[in-house]
Amino acid sequence: MARLTELGRNRYSAAFRSHTGRWEPLPGTGSLDEMTEVIVTLLQPYLQPDNY
C-alpha cells in the first residue's frame, strides 16, 4: 500500500506501508505525476502479479 501526502500547492511526498505496519517515507517530493512515477518505479517488484 502506498500513499501520497499533499505538502502544498502541487507538491507531494510519498510513503509506503511496511510489513511492520509503519508508513515509511519514499525519497523526494514533487508534483503528483513525479511522485506517482517514484512510487511505481520503487515499488514495481511488489506490484507485479505472482507468476506461480
Rank of each mutant, 00 (worst) to 15 (best):
I39A: 05
A2P: 03
M35C: 07
V40G: 09
V40C: 03
E24S: 10
M35K: 14
L47D: 04
R17M: 12
V38R: 12
S31Q: 08
R3Y: 13
Q48D: 11
F16E: 03
V40Y: 12
R3H: 13
Q44H: 14
L32Y: 15
V40P: 02
R22N: 00
G28S: 01
L43R: 10
R9W: 12
M35S: 07
A14D: 12
G30D: 08
P25E: 11
L7Q: 14
L26H: 10
L42V: 02
P49F: 13
I39E: 10
Q44F: 06
T29K: 12
G8C: 01
T29I: 06
S31R: 11
S13V: 00
P45F: 04
P27I: 03
V38D: 09
P25M: 08
G30S: 04
T41F: 04
V40E: 11
P27H: 11
E37K: 15
F16Y: 10
Y12F: 12
V40W: 06
D50N: 03
H19E: 11
I39P: 14
R11W: 02
S13G: 07
I39V: 14
R11M: 09
T29G: 07
W23P: 08
F16V: 01
E34N: 01
M1K: 08
D33N: 04
D33P: 05
T36P: 09
L32K: 15
L42M: 09
L42P: 11
G8D: 09
A14R: 13
R11H: 08
L47M: 03
L26S: 10
D50K: 10
N51H: 15
P25N: 15
R17N: 06
Q48E: 14
E6P: 14
A15H: 03
W23T: 03
E37F: 12
Q44N: 10
V38I: 11
N10G: 15
L4R: 15
R3T: 08
T20Q: 06
L26T: 08
P45Q: 02
E34W: 05
G30V: 07
T41L: 05
S31A: 09
L32E: 13
W23L: 07
L7E: 13
G30H: 08
R3V: 03
H19F: 07
G21E: 03
N10Q: 15
L42W: 06
E6S: 11
P49S: 09
R11E: 14
R11P: 00
V38L: 01
R22P: 00
E37Y: 13
S13H: 07
A2N: 06
L26E: 08
A14P: 13
T29L: 05
